[in-house]
Measured scan of single mutants.
Amino acid sequence: HNLTITQGKLFFHYNPKLCLSEIHKMEEVSGTKGRQERNDIALKTNGDQASCENELLKFSYIRTSFDKILLRWEPYWPPDFRDLLGFMLFYKEAPYQNVTEFDGQDACGSNSWTVVDIDPPLRSNDPKSQNHPGWLMRGLKPWTQYAIFVKTLVTFSDERRTYGAKSDIIYVQTDATNPSVPLDPISVSNSSSQIILKWKPPSDPNGNITHYLVFWERQAEDSELFELDYCLKGLKLPSRTWSPPFESEDSQKHNQSEYEDSAGECCSCPKTDSQILKELEESSFRKTFEDYLHNVVFVPRKTSSGTGAEDPRPSRKRRSLGDVGNVTVAVPTVAAFPNTSSTSVPTSPEEHRPFEKVVNKESLVISGLRHFTGYRIELQACNQDTPEERCSVAAYVSARTMPEAKADDIVGPVTHEIFENNVVHLMWQEPKEPNGLIVLYEVSYRRYGDEELHLCVSRKHFALERGCRLRGLSPGNYSVRIRATSLAGNGSWTEPTYFYVTDYLDVPSNIA
């Protein structure tokens, strides 16, 4: 807008934040220059609390790290170098490059900038070799853009010569660093050979998330399962459950009422301010606690030095998902009996873990797994792929695949051998790939016309006998059925096997 004052003059007093240069501009645009008398524009009460600059400061050096910015700028000295009290560095987070010096300023003089007072450097006698002032900004957020400017702080001049310097606002972004852990990993099994893994992005990506790394490792069953005799009275049979499938998407929606109208769909109840505040506090606490764990609990591995020492970490090797089922080394339970199943799973520490690289999504279907087997899954978020990966501390989750139908069934015939004193040795093959492992066998036998009897055969007993022995049988026709019990439950009964026990007292003698 054009402003013209045809008559009258300007009068400025007691404006401590208004620089004289701005008042002189007002004289020019209003056409009143030359009308004012000496005392109409006070030299001592206008701009006496402001830094009124008329020179431009330029930054000469900028260096960044993930949490620091090192700045240096060209030296500046007023005509009387004693008038320079120091520099004021202003900075704040700036997602967009549209910041002005006066953003967030209120009537009390406060604003949204963080201000650092910096002492002037030592003055050199040689004007050509003056030290460049600077400042190291610490405690910054990774991968965050900051708006920065600097200006001088000078003393009051009796001659009211307006001098000083100020830089333009520059924008500097800190470097990326390792992201925080992925949030809320959930693993479920939808079949006997697959596990579905879902997660949420890290709360602090500290860069642009480029991919996720998912490692999985087959877990050995508890050692007590191999040692305890679950045929003993009072000892509860062990059981394991597989990871249940995901709930429906509708039930997972946030901010939804727990109660549904019987007449149909209901609208979600909005969260109160107290609920939102509580969630923010919980989120802040979780982030602080995660940072504490990362800094205190997890110790970084030592990389190899120039002395030739090897990095103890196993090298990563990509495998196809079809090879995942046989990740671990199978060892027989008892070496003397080769027909026992290889369900003991000690994992070799030198073995390469299978892994998958996930790009542009937060889910993965891990296939080719062994049925009813526990897996430990390790999830890392990465925001750099080359020249070397920059990934987060791992988040861990466990899951067990679903049982395989008929995996616990005894394959092959049940054979028998009759000894003296009416002892019958029953023999059968253990299931080759049971659900988890076989903890015991149930032997059901009966003599024709009598009630059915049951015998429990422990895992250890089966390994020693290759089956079991029935003792003290009365003469007669017998039928026997056997079924295995694994961590997933009972298998199917075998087809009945028949044998006849004679009275050993009636056996004919070869003595003449």
Rank of each mutant, 00 (worst) to 15 (best):
S203T: 15
S203N: 07
S203R: 07
S203F: 12
D204S: 15
D204N: 04
G207T: 01
N208A: 09
T210Y: 11
T210P: 14
Y212T: 14
Y212A: 10
F215L: 10
F215M: 12
F215H: 10
W216P: 07
W216Y: 15
E217G: 13
R218P: 06
R218E: 10
R218N: 07
R218I: 05
R218W: 15
A220T: 15
S223V: 07
S223K: 08
L225E: 05
L225S: 08
L225Y: 14
E227W: 13
E227N: 10
E227Q: 08
L228Y: 15
D229A: 14
D229H: 08
Y230L: 14
C231T: 02
C231H: 01
L232S: 12
L232A: 09
K233V: 11
G234V: 08
L237H: 02
P238M: 12
P238H: 03
S239M: 03
S239D: 11
S239R: 07
R240A: 00
R240H: 09
R240G: 10
W242F: 02
S243Q: 06
S243I: 11
P245E: 07
P245D: 11
P245K: 05
E247N: 13
E247Y: 13
S248L: 03
S248T: 10
E249P: 07
E249T: 15
Q252W: 09
Q252H: 07
N255F: 04
N255T: 07
S257Y: 11
S257H: 05
Y259K: 09
E260F: 12
G264Q: 12
E265P: 07
E265R: 14
C266N: 14
C266I: 14
C267E: 05
S268V: 11
S268F: 05
C269I: 04
C269V: 08
T272K: 05
T272G: 09
T272M: 08
T272Q: 11
D273M: 07
I276V: 09
I276Q: 14
L277F: 13
K278R: 06
K278M: 09
K278G: 05
E282T: 05
E282N: 01
S284E: 04
R286G: 03
R286N: 03
K287P: 10
K287W: 15
F289T: 06
F289W: 04
E290H: 08
L293R: 15
N295A: 07
N295R: 12
F298K: 01
F298T: 06
P300F: 10
R301P: 05
K302C: 05
T303H: 07
S304C: 04
G306E: 14
G306F: 10
T307Y: 15
T307N: 09
G308P: 15
E310L: 09
E310K: 02
E310W: 09
D311S: 13
D311Q: 15
D311T: 11
R313F: 14
R313L: 04
P314I: 02
R316T: 08
R316I: 07
R318L: 07
S320G: 15
L321T: 10
L321E: 11
G322L: 11
D323Y: 13
G325Q: 15
G325W: 15
N326H: 13
N326F: 06
A330D: 02
A330S: 15
P332D: 07
P332I: 10
P332N: 08
P332E: 14
V334K: 13
A336F: 10
A336S: 13
F337A: 15
F337T: 14
P338W: 13
T340I: 14
S341K: 09
S341A: 11
S341M: 15
S342P: 11
T343G: 12
S344V: 09
V345M: 07
P346V: 14
T347Q: 15
P354F: 06
F355H: 10
F355N: 15
F355L: 10
F355Y: 08
E356P: 14
E356Y: 09
E356T: 06
K357A: 15
V358P: 12
V359P: 10
N360R: 13
S363G: 10
S363C: 11
L364M: 11
V365L: 08
G368I: 04
H371Y: 12
H371E: 05
H371R: 12
F372K: 02
G374S: 07
G374I: 11
G374F: 07
Y375R: 01
R376A: 03
I377F: 07
E378V: 12
L379K: 00
L379Q: 01
L379Y: 05
C382P: 14
N383D: 03
N383E: 02
D385S: 01
T386E: 09
P387K: 09
E388Q: 10
E389L: 09
R390E: 01
C391M: 04
C391P: 02
V393L: 06
A394Q: 08
A395R: 11
A395G: 12
Y396F: 00
Y396V: 06
Y396M: 15
S398C: 10
A399D: 15
A399I: 13
R400H: 12
M402Q: 14
M402A: 07
P403I: 13
P403T: 10
P403R: 13
E404G: 12
K406H: 09
A407D: 03
I410M: 05
I410S: 03
G412W: 13
G412N: 11
E417Q: 11
I418A: 08
F419K: 11
E420W: 02
N421C: 07
N421L: 07
N422M: 05
N422V: 10
V424N: 00
V424E: 03
H425I: 13
H425K: 14
H425G: 08
M427H: 15
M427K: 08
M427T: 15
P431I: 11
P431A: 04
K432S: 13
E433F: 13
N435S: 04
N435H: 03
G436Y: 02
G436E: 04
G436L: 07
L437M: 09
L437F: 05
I438Q: 02
I438T: 13
I438L: 11
V439I: 12
L440A: 11
Y441A: 01
V443M: 10
S444F: 09
Y445M: 14
Y448G: 00
G449N: 11
G449Q: 12
G449P: 08
G449K: 07
D450K: 09
E452M: 05
H454F: 01
H454G: 02
L455T: 10
L455G: 10
R459V: 13
K460R: 12
H461I: 10
H461A: 12
F462G: 03
F462D: 02
F462Q: 10
F462E: 02
F462R: 14
A463F: 09
L464G: 09
L464M: 06
E465A: 08
C468M: 12
C468A: 08
R469P: 03
L470Q: 01
L470M: 08
L473S: 01
S474P: 07
N477C: 03
Y478V: 01
Y478F: 08
S479Q: 06
V480L: 07
V480S: 03
I482L: 09
I482P: 01
R483T: 01
L487G: 02
G489S: 03
G491F: 02
S492N: 02
T494S: 07
E495V: 07
P496Y: 10
P496Q: 02
P496F: 14
P496A: 15
T497A: 03
Y498A: 11
F499A: 02
V501I: 08
V501A: 04
V501L: 06
V501G: 00
T502D: 09
Y504V: 13
Y504E: 13
P508K: 04
S509N: 09
A512V: 14
